[in-house]
């Protein structure tokens, strides 16, 4: 299994959006709750389309929701 390099703030954003439930976010973005859970846990990187839909639900920019973390090369450290 490849490691997911995209981290997200969905949990935090849900909390600040009146404790929005995962099911509510799933309904508003047109996916299953299982997919939202997988994204939150970093087990699945959403498509650009879904990423924008999630950002739109929180009324924020994409970068506020997702960030790319390039894999650190231990040899360089």
């Amino acid at each position: 299994m490849s490691r997911c390099l995209i981290s997200n703030n969905i949990r935090k954003l849900r909390f600040y959006t009146h404790e929005m439930t995962q099911q509510e976010l799933a309904d508003r973005t047109g996916v299953t709750r299982q997919t939202i859970i997988a994204i939150e846990n970093g087990k699945y990187s959403p498509t650009l389309d879904l990423a924008f839909r999630i950002a739109r639900v929180f009324n924020t920019q994409l970068e506020e929701v997702f960030s790319y973390m390039p894999e650190q090369n231990p040899d360089k450290e």
Partner: peptide, 9 residues
């Protein structure tokens, strides 16, 4: 039974 099939499915 879930009938919705999203991008992950």
């Amino acid at each position: 039974i879930p009938v919705l099939s999203d991008e992950r499915d």
